[in-house]
Design a binder for these strands. Structure first.
Lengths: 144, 144
DNA sequence: CAACAATCGAGACTCAGTCGCAATAAGCTC
DNA sequence: GAGCTTATTGCGACTGAGTCTCGATTGTTG
């Protein structure tokens, strides 16, 4: 994912392309693995990007609404984000380095039909997150 | 789920059966739908159960470690809990009233094998939460 | 019942996330 | 490109969930 992809999405959705948003797009695009709002705040402060705390949160809201970024709920309870394609999918997240891969629908669509029949609930949304070790981290020693 | 089930689990795991824990067990057992830590704090204050804020959080930690209670991450970003059986399963949560049902493994186990082969990750854990309307809420008007 | 360790409550504290508002600047129009 | 409109920003105060500390309490075991 590169920065223009993000700014384009903002533009197409009718949002203004401001300097702070460009800076954040850059930051997010070049980030490796998942990041927290605080990561962005800290980094943009350190690099004097002139992006305030509130703006980081506001931008993450917008971006996640556009589907350019998605919020993960880590097993630790923390909130993190990953850049991703705006289509239905799920994330496989490395619990060591935080890098993630997207996987498709995996037949969950049909599964949810079965669950509706079994429980009587009408399923509207679901969340599936998978955690484990990526190939690199496994080779690096976690693979025991 | 009833209160003894919860206190038994505590006892078997070697935890002391204190008055605050019994009170919380009672509260949780009789709760309808999901609840937040704050719900418990507020209720126990209102009913003068003499259970402090810190104790509620500490107890929820213990109980969720024992698998008697599970933490949900609602789409809103809030944290909630539900009482449940300590076995691998997933929750179907009503987005209107908060009541939830447990569903089994659903073939996710095999699915995760397929994902491992496709991505190279070694999957350790996953989280699947389904949100929708329960039969009662659907009948009550949400069923449009 | 005594002794020890686990647990508790109160309240201070931390820290993520929100809010209100005056200042700024994108983007449109001419 | 100047001017106008309005979305957006930064600041700083605020909120509220969750944690920590510590002296007091209370299960539990023998």
């Amino acid at each position: 994912m590169d920065a223009p992809t993000i700014t384009d999405a903002l533009g197409e959705a009718g949002y203004r392309l401001t300097a702070p948003r460009r800076a954040l797009a850059q930051l997010i695009a070049s980030w490796d693995g998942h990041f927290t709002a605080e990561d962005l705040v800290r980094t943009s402060r350190r690099r004097r990007l002139g992006v305030g705390r509130a703006t980081v949160f506001r931008s993450l809201d917008v971006l996640s609404e556009l589907g350019v970024v998605e919020r993960l709920d880590l097993p630790s309870g923390d909130h993190a984000y990953v850049a991703c394609e705006p289509a239905h999918h799920h994330h496989v997240v490395c619990s060591s380095c935080g890098r993630s891969k997207e996987v498709g629908d995996l037949g969950l669509g049909e599964m949810s039909g079965a669950i509706e029949r079994a429980t009587g609930y009408r399923i509207d949304t679901h969340r599936l997150e998978l955690f484990g070790l990526c190939p690199a981290c496994r080779r690096a020693g976690g693979g025991t």
